[in-house]
Design a protein around this nucleic acid. Structure first.
Lengths: 336, 336
DNA sequence: TTGTATGCGTTATCAT
DNA sequence: ATGATAACGCATACAA
């Protein structure tokens, strides 16, 4: 059995309140009693019991992070950023994710049942996952990460997907002189894909170019799928000034490989650009022009907002929009 | 303030013991009192307080996972497997990682200080990170994941790196007829690299082939580094029947791209193989021959062992060795 | 500056 | 079948 505060008190010949005081407000206790207590603490290798502490303080010093999926670099970067910041803020990090992206509400309710976290960051990427009710029932502060829930009552941190996609489109139109741009997105229910597609259409419209439904495809964000799909459609896509705007780097990579396999030159015969700036973007030949998305920063900001709200529950909801950044490499045919 | 068990008791006109009973051993309480209590619970939206519960039960129903790093698919897959299994086992998962891989003991001590987890899975990949003392002080069950700590007192789950590397070497020697095999590893302190290198040397020795120190390099597992390094050394490496055995897929990919950039053909002029079978392995041209490492399964097994030990602290330490599997694609020049 | 006593919300033991 | 009550380990208001 681990040593309790009473053991320490006995060992140091003081009361438990004194021990508690050297633990929490060391300034208010006499110098020599303090060292005696500290000695006893070290001697017995005493650690305060979190449960008893939590019972009094109503705090666990843990933050939760709910993710829709754990596949791929995107989410792993969010975790990385969140972990680093949580640690810096002296919180432990609880991760919750389900293979089924629709089951976010189940995860939230589970965390709620345990009510073990002082706050919860929730990332939902599918419109179809309805988490509103689960969120409303959640007792601790909640911050929405990137997307699908647009409720002004919550703190939110998002990526300005639209700005990123517009920057890419502008680059394609203005610098690369693209005459035709195709859009290859993820699932139609994916909120990021939706935002990027909107920007694609809007920018095309503003440029006075037609938005052909035939030039918009929805795949599933996977390399293999994009590769196979591209092999079938490449002949319709290719042409001078033609470009495929893929909604993530993996699909862009698949399309490039498919083009190369058919003897096409990227970007001369067909330009291909991506989104996210994950590591694969630097591993394609030619290296991928893409939009850098600050994934780790998003995770970190989520933890920060959570921590701030725990400290000050009364303040008005924060809204943080992180700016993606265009990264020009070689797959777009411009070295601007 | 959230409703407590006392509120429920009042609301249902019973004692708190009865409420506690319908919560934990519902069979032993009268039918109609039970429904009354259940009604009150729903009415007040009551959830047992975890802290009070933990105080009594000495259990948190949380498991910890300490990782050396969060970069890259390898660790994210471990997390994915661990998360899924933990969830299946009804545990929440606490992730702890530090940007500094040497600081694993700091993470462990932090978790120990919080003593919030019922068990801890620790993955250490650098020999130089000394965690033995921190581990020894840890109060809850510990399982060692993949490697660096070889202490028979702990439950352990490892990848049989040697078997995987031997399988690859055998394939290279027997099926690909390689006449010269170079080894490009990660840091010399990395335990996986060490194991793979040992197997490399042993297999070469058994085959009666010389092990030249000039054919062994240590990089840092990164694509870029391998790419640049390869561009400088390719001329010394290339030749019929020559092959580079990279200790991970990312470096293999970098080497392939470097070779291709210099107009070399893979595998004709130089074969290149990798290790891990991460997603990049299917994204290289030609697709990479590599060794599949069951990363997610390792994470899952860790959680399983932890859970079993929590249930039965007395049983003798388990040792689970997971088998990697050779995956033959096209970069080795054999379609066996 | 230090000690005493109370309560936090449970579960478990023992009565009834 | 149900209720009263004692832990569990800690923080804190209040007393000394």
């Amino acid at each position: 059995m681990a040593a309790s505060i009473a053991d320490v008190a006995r060992h140091a010949n003081v009361s438990i309140s004194t021990v508690s005081r050297v633990l929490n407000r060391r300034d208010v206790v006499n110098e020599k009693t303090r060292v005696r207590v500290e000695h006893a603490i070290a001697e017995l290798n005493y650690r305060p019991n979190v449960f008893a502490r939590g019972l009094m303080l109503q705090k666990s010093e843990m933050l939760g992070l709910v993710l829709p999926d754990l596949h791929g670099e995107f989410y792993s970067e969010v975790i990385r950023g969140a972990n680093a910041k949580a640690r810096e803020l002296r919180y432990a990090l609880v991760i919750a994710s389900s293979p089924d992206p629709e089951d976010a509400h189940g995860l939230i309710e589970d965390l709620q049942r345990r009510s073990i976290t002082d706050g919860l960051a929730v990332m939902v990427s599918e419109r179809t996952a309805h988490v509103a009710e689960s969120l409303a029932e959640f007792r601790a502060p909640v911050v929405i990460v990137d997307g699908a829930v647009e409720d002004l009552r919550y703190d939110r941190v998002v990526i300005d997907q639209r700005a990123g996609a517009v920057a890419m489109m502008r680059h394609l139109l203005d610098n690369c002189r693209c005459s035709r741009i195709l859009f290859v997105g993820g699932l139609e229910t994916n909120v990021d894909t939706m935002a990027r597609l909107d920007a694609y259409k809007a920018t095309l419209g503003e440029a006075g170019m037609p938005v052909s439904p035939r030039d918009v495809y929805h795949l599933d964000y996977q390399y293999e799928t994009a590769y196979r799909f591209a092999r079938q459609h490449l002949s319709e896509w290719t042409g001078p000034g033609h470009c495929v705007f893929a909604a993530n780097d993996e699909m862009a990579s698949g399309i490039i490989d498919a083009a190369t396999a058919q003897g096409l030159r990227v970007p001369q015969d067909l330009a291909v650009v991506g989104f996210d700036d994950t590591r694969v973007a630097r591993m394609t030949r030619p290296p991928l022009t893409t939009v850098h998305v600050p994934m780790a920063q998003m995770g970190a900001t989520a933890m920060e907002l959570l921590c701030q709200r725990v400290a000050d529950p009364g303040r008005s909801p924060a809204f943080v929009s992180l700016s993606p950044q265009l990264v020009v490499r070689e797959s777009c045919g411009s070295k601007l």
